[in-house]
Computed example of a mutant assay.
Amino acid sequence: MANTGIDQDAVVQVLNHILEAELAGVVRYTHYALMVFGYNRIPIVSWMRGQANESLLHANEAGELITHLGGHPSLGIGPLLETHKHDIGDILRESLEHETQALAEYYSLLELVNGRNVLLEEYARRMCALEETHVGEVRKMLLKPGG
C-alpha cells in the first residue's frame, strides 16, 4: 500500500479496538438473546441475534483491514458489562452504552484517516453511519409508546 500520510500504527491500534468492541458485541448480543423473556421475546431475540451476527461481520471486516495494513489482529475482547439485570429496558440501556462506545471508536478512526486514505475513510464513514443507526434504533426502543 502506498504511503498515504496516515499513522499506520495508530490506525491499526484503533482498528484493533474496533475488532475487540465488535467481538464483545457478538458475546453481548448472544447473551442478551438468551436472557429475553416475556410477550415480545421472539422479535427481540431475533433482533439481538441479528446484532450478534452483524457484530461478527464487522469484527471480520476490521480484522481484514488490520492485516491489509500489515498489522496483527488482537485476540482480545472489549469490555463485557453485565449488570445482572435482565429486564428488557436494562438490556437495551447496556446495549446503548455498547453501541455508543463502538461509535466513538469509528469516529476516532475517521479522524485519523479523513482526507488521507480513501479505503479507510469510506470504511469509517460507512461504519459511523451504521453505528449511528444502531444508536438511534436502541434509543427508539427505549421510548415509551406515545411518549
Rank of each mutant, 00 (worst) to 15 (best):
A2Y: 09
A10S: 13
V11R: 02
L15H: 01
N16H: 06
N16T: 09
I18P: 01
I18L: 06
L19F: 05
L19W: 03
E22Y: 06
A24W: 02
G25V: 08
V27N: 04
V27R: 05
T30W: 10
T30V: 12
H31P: 08
L34M: 14
M35W: 09
M35K: 13
I44P: 02
V45I: 12
W47P: 02
R49G: 10
S55I: 09
L56V: 11
L56D: 12
L57S: 14
H58V: 09
A62C: 07
L65D: 02
T67D: 04
P73V: 11
L75A: 13
L75P: 06
I77A: 01
I77Y: 03
G78R: 05
P79D: 12
E82Y: 13
E82S: 14
E82C: 13
T83E: 14
H84A: 14
H86L: 10
H86Y: 15
H86W: 15
D87L: 08
I91C: 03
R93C: 07
H98S: 08
E99G: 02
L103N: 09
E105M: 13
Y106V: 04
Y106R: 04
Y107N: 12
L109F: 03
L110H: 09
L110S: 06
L110K: 08
L112C: 01
V113W: 00
N117P: 02
E122I: 07
Y123E: 00
M127V: 06
M127E: 01
E132Y: 07
T133R: 10
T133W: 05
G136I: 07
K140T: 06
M141W: 05
L143E: 06
L143Q: 12
K144P: 03
P145H: 01
